[in-house]
Design a protein around this nucleic acid. Structure first.
Lengths: 219, 219
DNA sequence: CGAATTTTCAAACAAGTGTTTGACACGCTC
DNA sequence: GAGCGTGTCAAACACTTGTTTGAAAATTCG
């Protein structure tokens, strides 16, 4: 961890991030945030103006911290690797991000709040964060299923893949409760990603009504 | 709509249901609920004790209203129809419930709150509501993939199917925003269900590493 | 009817909310 | 040291929160 600054301002953003992520905007208290940040309550007015603008700053901070899986893939792999490998990598990285993220967990948690219950402040950040991921996935799928498949079906297929991944994060509590801790603990990130990959390439071939492009490259 | 009683008590439960579903327990206000129910603020203490117990009553009301897809399927179809037809029906009914439910939308919305951010009051209701659905789906999958497949894989396959369905509900706003209203409006409940079905039976066959049971019965 | 019980209501409660104030301390340059 | 701008702080602001009170109103029942 490289020397990160210890301003009252950044401490506020970070403490606010944790608490907003945990309880949502409404249920989070300014006093609670300031106590966690070791700052006076008046500090949020001084640095941000009010609670909403603090929330906005938190969202912008999250956006600024995003490590671009999209760009990373585009540069390293998009041009060289066959689409099946790209899909496998995409799924693995997404599962990793959602189940074993190395950056603070609250970054994703706040994004999830925005994804399910959008606020005016978050819409733009959501767009900037998700749009590149969506088009990247759409391109991969398009290469796999060919040009005869409708745009609509490509979207639905993307939803099928993303929906599988998000389930393990968003509904983790339910999955645990239903499957039982014993079984759930056995699941590793790689296993989950592999399952979703195998499940999805078969699903894609089915909705494409033909074998996938470069099928021979599958594992 | 058959003669539903118009007690202050039931009006409170129903108004509370709507508002709890919309904003969650913390952000919902007692005064707002009572105004919507045309009741005095003191009524919640008189009939329920306090806000938490009102919430508990709402959850129990939701549970009491559940129409048992599980039982319905068990009686009418489980014994007579091949598992592929059962799966198709299961997916269709689940998509219907989540995207075009005939019962008040807030029933499901409250369940979703409990699924993502469990409260002490909700855990039991969640269990009672979801457990039968989960075992039903698990049984269908087991019949389709055979006995060689591990229990773990059956769970993961179930998660894959349920994850696809839930995505269209939980992340509807994002899906709309990304795909665009134009494309999104085109999607009908039956199309979505059909897509998930086709995608999933191919996925199941892939993870089972063999053709599904009674594959000939597929559409 | 008239007494007993159940239900409703406006008003107030203490505690919590986001926000604001004005004073105070620090580091800086002139 | 005086002056100035930047940060910090306890205290108070106006308002909302969930909860409570005690007295009316409505209902039930002998």
């Amino acid at each position: 961890m490289v020397a990160v600054q210890d301003d009252t301002k950044t401490r506020l953003i970070e403490a606010a991030g944790v608490i907003f992520a945990d309880k949502g905007f409404d249920a989070a208290g300014v006093r609670e945030i300031c106590q966690e940040a070791k700052a006076n309550v008046a500090a949020v007015k001084y640095y941000f103006g009010d609670k909403r603008k603090l929330y906005k700053a938190v969202l912008q901070h999250v956006h600024a911290c995003k490590d671009n899986l999209a760009l990373q893939m585009a540069e390293e792999q998009l041009k060289t690797q066959p689409p099946l490998i790209q899909l496998k990598f995409y799924i693995l990285e997404m599962v990793r991000e959602h189940l074993a993220s190395q950056k603070p967990a609250w970054h994703l948690e706040i994004m999830l709040w925005e994804m399910t219950r959008q606020t005016a402040e978050g819409r733009e950040v959501i767009e900037l964060q998700l749009r590149p991921m969506a088009t990247l996935l759409k391109n991969i799928i398009r290469r796999l299923v060919g040009d005869e498949v409708s745009e609509e079906t490509v979207w639905k297929s993307g939803f099928s893949i993303v929906g599988q991944v998000l389930f393990y994060h968003v509904h983790q509590a339910i999955a645990r409760q239903l499957a039982g801790d014993a079984i759930y603990e056995e699941l590793t990130v790689d296993q989950i990603a592999e399952h979703i990959y195998q499940f999805s390439i078969a699903g894609l071939a089915a909705v494409a009504k033909r074998p996938l492009a470069h099928e021979s490259a599958a594992s």
